[in-house]
Design a protein around this nucleic acid. Structure first.
Lengths: 342, 342
DNA sequence: TTTCAACACGAAAACGATTTCGTGCCAGTA
DNA sequence: TACTGGCACGAAATCGTTTTCGTGTTGAAA
């Protein structure tokens, strides 16, 4: 086992001082050409690379950014991560990922861990539990310590920081409008509970679209689901006695559960009922019928978030504390779970 | 903006030396009770937390482990990550993730970055390009520097290190055996090219199962796919003029493409053709018909890999250089894409 | 011959923590 | 009185860098 080479060892080996080695490697004109070349040749030969930890300590920056997300086994989040990774890498940053598991405590612990010098800034999407509690002291703490924070997707108004979101209201509205356009009259909504911001906003979009088309908003046609696990049951019970010709669901899973139930009970999709989901994942693409969805462009969100964060990190601090909220446009990907426009 | 508290500041504030503060916070008996309590109270009040970077430098360990995987937008890898995360967190480790994008160069760069002090060890699955080139100098380099390495899934015999794999041969064999058991006679294989180890091994399993049942191995019934993008085309062309009653595919996507083609051409699954995939993802579960698959237990692989790595990290180095290869059992999850046993 | 700049390099501080080794003081003992 | 031994604390080294500020040598100008 050959341990890593350090400046000190090079210095001893070549019988010069540590400072000389450091300067030579950084091409300082202070060092004579001969010595400089000798040192550089030696370092190259033995593949010297400066120790990141020492550099981080010295420079007080780690060149790594921390991502904290509720879960990773979720297509949307992985696309965001790959977006972040991409621009982070291009800019010479590393990415360190922590999962909150949708637990408030884990989110706090992870954040405190990373805040103690491990990262220069954060990109986060909040845990469900955090939003429910409304306790954001850890975010405030980090910001007040001068760590830039970019929230995405699951954001919260009370926190002043940069944000990358999609226009959930508009996305939902466009989806429901499309259902109206293809002739649906009784459109159901399958959403999550309101304290998850996206649930609330997408519900707003749904309502808005109906109102704009002078359709009545019937509370009976709205289902709010709390736990992923109970979703299939709830959706079955919900659809059992309803006559609907359109369904807007706030994610792929709800949409597919609905389709399954419908098909098992003699309804055809899209002939009898048109269904639209939210978030464009593998499932939507390959399900039969393939799903019409609102696409969230996770990769773009990740790229955007990383760009904003790094920009903040590289700017001299103090000046111009402006926070931006970037809205990434949603698209409606039309596939086979909706009738085509007449 | 209030910058982070350091030992030095506490020392100045309380008019004691830095060493005293450090010792007091670590409950050293060297420090008088009164002083100790005073310091601890102060630190607690201002929420002092030691700087990770400084600790890393001092202790020469970072308490973080690096994961390098080919891609993250892939259900199997995310389950592995969440497994690693879980046990890493329990043991007080952080996880830093890098993506190689299946590129050899990116893999090398990422690895060198992380090896310069950022992590204590690696958990990796090799990039396709790396396996193709057969160039593993970066792995050897890391190992020779004393960084433990655990390979999983896409591993390679030439490298001496711990490994976590599934028994691809057996998994495939069991799958094909099941097809035989339910009465299939002409079983096709849709696989990836051989230099990806899993492609080769699963092909072996396929062959083995056929031979054991005295069925002929017909090269005409074997398709090897190089690029994900061309898979649908290739599968369609492959199936066009074939009479098969069973298909074993080495991943979900190939399986589903096959089913799609069959259904569009008047065959029923599973009545006319039974299909089995490999890797149990969201898609398999929710596709209609839901897919019978060989489940890889990614979470368990991640947990296992993390456990092995951390064990290595916490053992005093030098002694007992034994490398293990853990084989995680596969399971056959029977769903609706295969006929049931008579 | 003296003086001074330029050159080439080294010493030391700093980043934030831990730890070893002193050291000053006081009480107790011979 | 002189010595010993705790006690409570501080100084300094250390981890691996970078960077500021010397400092000794040389050659040229005065």
């Amino acid at each position: 086992m050959r341990p890593k080479l350090t400046l000190k060892q090079i210095a001893k080996e070549l019988d010069v001082s540590i400072s000389t080695v450091s300067k030579a490697l950084r091409d300082s004109s202070e060092i004579g050409e001969e010595t400089r070349e000798k040192i550089k040749a030696f370092a190259k030969f033995y593949n010297y690379k400066p120790n990141n930890i020492a550099l981080s300590l010295k420079n007080r920056k780690t060149k790594t950014i921390g991502i904290i997300i509720p879960e990773i086994v979720h297509h949307f989040f992985t696309t965001v991560i790959s977006g972040v990774e991409k621009v982070a890498n291009e800019m010479g940053y590393n990415v360190i990922i922590c999962l909150s598991d949708n637990s408030f405590d884990k989110e706090v612990i992870n954040m405190e861990m990373l805040a103690n010098g491990s990262t220069d800034g954060f990109i986060m999407s909040l845990a469900k539990e955090t939003m429910q509690k409304g306790d954001y002291h850890h975010l405030i703490e980090a910001i007040s310590q001068g760590m830039p924070l970019v929230l995405f997707d699951r954001v919260v108004d009370q926190i002043l920081c940069d944000k990358v979101i999609i226009d959930d209201v508009l996305g939902a509205q466009k989806a429901v409008q499309h259902l109206v356009d293809i002739g649906c009259k009784r459109i159901a909504l399958i959403s999550t509970v309101d304290y998850v911001s996206v649930g609330k906003l997408r519900t707003q979009g749904y309502t808005l679209a109906l109102e704009e088309n002078d359709l009545e908003v019937d509370e009976d046609l709205i289902l709010k689901i709390e736990e992923m696990e109970e979703s299939e049951d709830k959706i079955e019970r919900f659809l059992r006695d309803k006559e609907v010709d359109g369904i807007f669901a706030v994610n792929e899973h709800f949409a597919i559960s609905a389709i399954k139930y419908l098909q098992e009970h003699g309804k055809r999709v899209p002939e009898d009922v048109s269904v639209i989901g939210f978030t464009d994942g593998e499932l939507s693409k390959r399900f039969i019928p393939s799903l019409t969805t609102v696409s969230q462009h996770g990769t773009r969100m990740g790229e955007e978030a990383a760009r904003i964060l790094i920009e903040k990190l590289e700017k001299t601090p103090g000046e111009d504390e402006q926070y931006r909220t970037v809205i990434v446009e949603t698209g409606l990907v039309k596939r086979n779970s909706t009738k085509s426009l007449k």
